[in-house]
Design a binder for these strands. Structure first.
Length: 692
DNA sequence: TATCATGGTAAGGGTAATGATAAGCC
DNA sequence: AGGCTTATCATTACCCTTACCATGAT
């Protein structure tokens, strides 16, 4: 039991356990409390959050008066895996920030979540064995690992930086210090005692990592930018004069010590620039193999001392050597193949399949293994980064996290390719693809009148099925009569027998041109009987406050179809997948749409560019992995705020046999126009409209 | 004196972004 | 041929970990 108090006031917050009190940007106080250890052992079933144990009391009953802050407490269980919970407290009378002194915080900030497993009975000695320990040696780390500690490594996430900044901000306020640089660069060790420990609260990083991060952040000689030729010249002189005294050199140049150190690493009098000569490449290969005791043709991506390699190569820096080797030479030597569009899609699919919570958790070595067109794990990682960068908002897109904040994770992934293959790849915010109680099972929620192009099977289970596209360019036809959805129930459960749902965005002109030369694919639901009944948890009571909205549950059944499946075999297998596709249309487009009542302009069609006949496609539906669903949105993706009227979505009924029959007749002709990207001929669109 | 806590430096492996250039397309 | 776009190769500023050291307190 620990006691938390606002030292300047009368309110005491008591809990049976240790708590962490933090403050968010809105000024709300966040009380974070780990569940009592005794309750949490293997308690998957014990879903009762411990918030009932919280109690607020007044420290001094007599002192209660108008100035006593009234604090409301809301307990928010965080997740099923995290036995801790979060409490948001709102004070109705203002609690000044500087009243929360550092001393108070020291008492409050005892533990945060399950990683802080050494609960101190007194509260202020132990915070985290990780964030409070200055450890850099292997023994220290092994020791902590053996005790069951885990900590984060690698690049800092935005969230971590936010926590750090908040901590620093609070520290400054508590001490009445304006600028953190005073503490970091001017104060003596003694004066800033506990500074780093205090600001490391809530961060699951070694104290040393926090220290480094803070130094860099507040060093105004860092992030100065590109070195000018004059600076380079001066740097060379200083180097001769001061050797490896980076601090002195940096001070003379107005750069940080690490900056000048790093810059010097890139400079070598004997360094060539530009294209590598054959001789240089040959030398590099020989040196790498010699130093790593490997043979030409072996794949070497780790354990290379690049400084030593560069020394031996002579004409290139360590960075140049490393880059050349990992991005080209090793791959070339070991008989690598060219990277293709299919590889790109395959990469996206495989990463999606990994279902990792953090991009840093991706094992690139494993992913690259046996993939002949991947030049190295490092290269693959940068390839992924390049793909991601092709979307405008990639910086706002967080990687899907599976367990924390369910609604904000899966639904925010957006990966757009501007190549000719996939126009986009995203899980739409509007769909609220929310994890349910069943692992791997999500609730896909749509707006109320939205008719998704789904194929209904036995009610209430709706089955997503896919026609088989022959290439990534294909759009698969799928539609669902809105009446079906609405008649069935307000909550429709859809089970999807596919590895994943990809929600794809296409521009209006893209789909128009697609339609113009498209051939329709017969809608096939031959797998409908294979699907198990949905768990009860997915029924109507899942979202009691939104029962008027159709809900579609998508249950991915991840298979082990990996590189081997996609890379070398017929591409017809490649996109036998379920996709949810949206269209990018402007508001005026929507308006026009309503006026003209021509939803068929965005019909669900299959653009078959590679399969010669419709029959062949139907046969391929036996390998349904993905389906494309097309839903219009002015944003290119459906936002929660989008109002999607039924009119703007093609109902299933318009894709019944007459149309399909019509296109079946034409398919042999159109199907021969392989790869032709755009056709001005809009006959198919007109046909669809007419049929409607 | 030995040990620990704390703060610090240097080396080097690595990432993310940009620049330069080649290749492809119209 | 020339301009434009895209892909690839090369470069570099910055990031992070590891190993090790210094110093003062206990």
């Amino acid at each position: 039991m620990s006691t938390v108090e606002e030292d300047s006031d009368t309110v005491t917050v008591e809990t049976v356990n240790s708590v962490t009190l933090t403050q968010d940007t809105d000024g709300n106080l966040i009380l974070h409390c780990p569940q009592n250890e005794a309750d949490e052992i293997d308690s998957e079933d014990s879903t009762e959050p411990p918030h009932k144990r919280l109690c607020l009391s007044s420290e001094d009953d007599q002192s209660i008066d108008d100035s006593t802050p009234c604090i409301s407490v809301v307990a928010l269980p965080l997740s099923e895996n995290d036995q801790s919970f979060e409490v948001t407290m709102t004070a109705t009378t203002e609690v000044a920030d500087d009243e929360i002194t550092e001393g108070t915080v020291t008492q409050i900030q005892i533990l945060q979540n399950e990683q802080l497993d050494e609960i101190s009975p007194l509260g202020n000695e132990e915070v985290s064995a990780v964030s409070q320990a200055w450890f850099t040696t292997k023994e220290d780390k092994d020791s902590l690992t053996n005790k069951g500690h885990k900590w984060k490594q690698g690049m800092w996430s935005k969230e971590e930086i936010d926590i750090l900044m908040n901590n620093i901000e609070r520290y400054l306020k508590a001490r009445g210090i304006k600028d953190a640089t005073e503490i970091i660069f001017e104060m003596s060790k003694d004066e800033r005692k506990d500074f780093y420990r205090t600001i490391a609260w809530g961060l699951n990083r070694p104290l040393f990592a926090v220290y480094r991060r803070v130094l860099r952040m507040y060093d105004d000689r860092n992030h100065v930018g590109k070195y000018t030729p004059e600076e380079i010249e001066k740097l060379k002189e200083l180097r001769i004069k001061h050797g490896n005294d980076w601090a002195t050199i940096g001070a003379a140049l107005g750069r940080s010590a690490s900056s000048v150190k790093d810059r010097c690493r890139l400079m070598k009098d004997t360094c060539n620039t530009g294209k590598w000569t054959e001789d240089e490449e040959k030398r590099l290969a020989e040196v790498v193999h010699e130093l790593t005791s490997t043979e030409p043709g072996d794949i070497v991506t780790q354990g290379v001392s690049w400084a030593a390699v560069a020394e031996r190569v002579g004409t290139r820096s360590e960075k140049q050597c490393r880059s050349k080797w990992l991005n080209y030479l090793n791959w070339k030597q070991s008989g690598g193949t060219e990277w293709t569009k299919e590889d790109e899609i395959n990469l996206i699919l495989r990463i999606a399949e990994l279902d990792v919570a953090d991009e840093n958790d991706i094992n690139w070595d494993l992913l690259a293994e046996g993939w002949s067109s991947v030049r190295s794990p490092q290269w693959l990682r940068s390839k992924w980064w390049t793909i991601k960068r092709q979307i405008a908002n990639h910086k706002d897109v967080s990687f899907p996290a599976s367990s924390e904040s369910p609604a904000a994770t899966v639904d925010s992934e957006t990966i757009t390719l501007n190549s000719g293959t996939l126009q986009a790849f995203e899980i739409l915010p509007s769909f609220h693809l929310q994890p349910t109680g069943t692992p791997g099972t999500y609730l896909l929620q749509t707006s109320s009148s939205q008719g998704l192009p789904l194929t209904l099977t036995a009610s209430p289970t709706v089955t997503l099925t896919a026609a088989a596209p022959a290439s990534p360019e294909q759009i698969i036809v799928h539609a669902l009569s809105p009446e079906h959805l609405l008649n069935t129930s307000d909550n429709v459960t859809v089970q999807c027998h596919t590895p994943r749902v990809i929600i794809q965005t296409v521009a209006t002109e893209d789909i128009t041109s697609s339609i113009s030369q498209a051939e329709l694919t017969v809608d096939s639901d031959i797998h409908s009987s294979d699907f198990p009944e949905p768990p009860d948890a997915l029924e109507a009571d899942t979202f009691p406050d939104e029962i008027h909205q159709p809900k579609i549950t998508v249950e991915p059944s991840f298979n082990d179809g990996h590189v081997s499946k996609f890379s070398d075999q017929n591409s017809t297998e490649l996109m036998n997948n379920v996709m949810v596709r949206t269209e990018e249309i402007s508001d005026s487009d929507l308006k026009q749409e309503e006026e003209s009542s021509s939803p068929l302009a965005r019909a669900y069609v299959t653009e078959d560019l590679e399969s010669p006949t419709i029959e062949e496609q139907v046969d391929q539906t036996t390998i349904d992995d993905e389906t494309i669903l097309i839903v219009p949105s002015p944003h290119g993706f459906i936002q929660a705020s989008d109002v999607i009227d039924t009119e703007s979505v093609l109902p299933l009924t318009t894709l019944t046999d007459p149309i399909l029959q019509h296109h079946r007749e034409e398919s042999n002709i159109i199907g021969s126009s392989l790869g032709s990207p755009v056709s001005e001929d809009s006959k198919d669109v007109e046909d669809l409209v007419n049929c409607h």
